[in-house]
């Protein structure tokens, strides 16, 4: 498994783990009250900041093993990253459009922020799945 392939697995695990942690802490904090009335800003900030830090640390750790050959990336890795980023970008747009519609409808800020967050999470999950699939099965040659 190449460095970039392992990186895709890390991105997938960190994204799912961070969002699951956010939801767990949010529900626990709400303690039966409506979610939209629960403070959420700090949780989102910690989730995004924490997932970046954990992702970087795990990537550094896997890069420490196997020498230069194990850390090598090449033109195929860059092609896979470019294509998977395109897959992920569509979900950021969907999240942004959903947030815009919610804002037009004057829905509570909580739901607007979380619509954007879900877009980020879906983007992260689907782009990493796309990377894993392309590393395993091949790069489309259209």
């Amino acid at each position: 498994m190449s460095f970039e392939h392992r990186g895709a697995w890390i991105q997938l695990a960190v994204t799912i783990g961070a969002y699951a942690t956010y939801l767990t802490l949010l529900v626990r904090r709400a303690d039966g009250a409506p979610l939209s009335a629960t403070p959420y800003g700090d949780l989102i900030a910690w989730m995004i900041g924490g997932s970046i830090v954990v992702g970087v640390v795990l990537t550094i750790i896997i890069g420490m093993f196997g020498g230069e050959r194990a850390r090598r990336t090449d033109v195929r890795d860059r092609a896979i990253n470019r294509l998977s980023d395109q897959v992920g970008a569509s979900f950021i747009i969907i999240g942004a459009v959903a947030a815009m519609i919610l804002a037009i409808l004057e829905v509570e800020h909580f739901w607007i922020a979380n619509a954007i967050l879900v877009g980020f999470v879906a983007s992260g999950i689907l782009s990493s799945i796309a990377r894993i699939v392309m590393h395993r099965t091949g790069v489309p040659s259209w």
Binding site: M1, S2, F3, H5, R72, T73, D74, V75, R76, D77
Partner: peptide, 9 residues
């Protein structure tokens, strides 16, 4: 200067 996985692919 590429990965072994790229040569295999």
């Amino acid at each position: 200067g590429v990965t072994r996985q790229t040569v295999n692919a």
